[in-house]
């Protein structure tokens, strides 16, 4: 496994996420399919990283590991100094609730909840009062420009609007890191642009650390750094561009 040109200290920020010697394989029947093998790299605070690469190269797998919804076969993943691979299931769930905001390709909103209720949902895991939750959810929705759509159900919103609700849901808990897996994969060009600009703003103005998987160069251009996961015998990372 090779890591090329790992960029050091462009921003001077501390390392937020550190993967070291991470391997992951899947079992398909009797066959074992290696996906990631001995991957080591860092993500710094306030970074906006785009993770590119061909389909099947393991982008989602890597993102899932960073987000703590999948666990590696080997290696450590430290986020803010804490090795999340050592956390038991229940603590990992609490850790995700506090530290990770998720943005999915297909939005994954609860269809029976309104925009506001969807955004409020992660806050029900905190001990905030009802009013406080409402206020924060309102604020998050206003940050993505949807203050006038709070009472709408997901089915009453366009794809781009739904993804913006999802972004509001992801940031409402003020997490350490936002992970986005193909957030524009299901959107038309205009909606994609709006979503990416929001993410850019969250990163630039509010200092959110974002890790985004995409195979779209136009989307990746919104990030500060692009890395490619290439698939030879094994996947390896290529630093593509420095801002």
């Amino acid at each position: 496994m090779t890591v090329l040109h790992l960029s050091e200290a462009r921003t001077g920020e501390e390392v937020l996420i550190a993967l070291s010697d991470v391997s992951k394989s899947y079992r398909r029947g009797a066959q074992i399919v290696p996906v990631l093998s001995g991957l080591t790299f860092d993500i710094r605070r306030k970074e906006f990283l785009a993770l590119m690469g061909p389909s099947g190269s393991g982008k989602s797998t890597m993102l899932n590991l960073i987000a703590g919804i999948d666990s590696p076969d080997q290696g450590s993943i430290k986020v803010g100094g804490e090795d999340i691979t050592l956390l038991p299931e229940a603590e990992l769930a609490d850790w995700r609730a506090a530290n990770v905001g998720f943005i999915f390709q297909f939005y994954n909103l609860m269809p029976v909840l309104t925009a506001l209720e969807n955004v409020e949902l992660p806050l029900t895991l905190t001990d905030l009062g009802r009013r406080e939750r409402r206020d924060r959810a309102q604020l998050a929705l206003s940050l993505v420009g949807l203050s006038d759509r709070v009472k709408h159900l997901p089915s009453e919103l366009s794809g781009g609007q739904q993804q913006r609700v999802a972004i509001a849901r992801a940031i409402v808990t003020d997490p350490t890191v936002l992970v986005a897996d193909e957030p524009t994969g299901d959107l038309d060009r205009q909606s994609a642009k709006e979503v990416l600009e929001i993410m850019q703003r969250l990163n630039r103005d509010m200092g959110k650390t974002i890790v985004m998987v995409t195979h779209d160069h136009r989307a990746a251009a919104h990030a500060k750094r692009i890395m490619s996961l290439e698939k030879g015998d094994l996947s390896y990372l290529v630093e593509q561009r420095l801002e």
């Binding site: 919804i69 769930a93 609490d94 995700r96 609730a97 506090a98 998720f102 609860m110 949902l121």
Partner: peptide, 13 residues
Amino acid sequence: LREYATLKAIGFS
């Protein structure tokens, strides 16, 4: 199942 997985991802047990 996808909704349940989403809930679990964002921290529900």
